[in-house]
C-alpha cells in the first residue's frame, strides 16, 4: 500500500484507508482511483499527486 501526496496542497491519499466517504473503498490502489477524481482539499487532478512513501 502506498501514499500519494497532492503537490499543490499537501493532501495525502492513503491507499490503505481509501476515501470511503467518496466511494473509494479502503485498499483502493492509486491506479484504480477514477481518472476524473480530484483532490478533496484543493480540486487539482490526479496528475498533481506524487508518491510519498512505500
Amino acid at each position: 500500500m502506498k501514499k500519494w501526496e497532492c503537490v499543490v496542497c499537501g493532501f495525502i491519499y492513503d491507499e490503505a484507508e481509501g476515501l470511503p466517504e467518496e466511494g473509494i473503498a479502503a485498499g483502493t490502489a492509486w491506479d484504480d482511483v477514477p481518472e476524473d477524481w480530484v483532490c478533496p482539499d484543493c480540486g487539482v487532478g490526479k496528475e498533481d499527486f506524487e508518491m510519498v512513501e512505500i
Binding site: 499543490v8 496542497c9 480530484v38 482539499d41 484543493c42 480540486g43 487539482v44
Partner: peptide, 8 residues
C-alpha cells in the same frame, strides 16, 4: 483566496 475555487 483558496485553491478549490481557483481550480473550479
Amino acid at each position: 483566496p483558496y485553491v478549490l475555487p481557483l481550480m473550479a
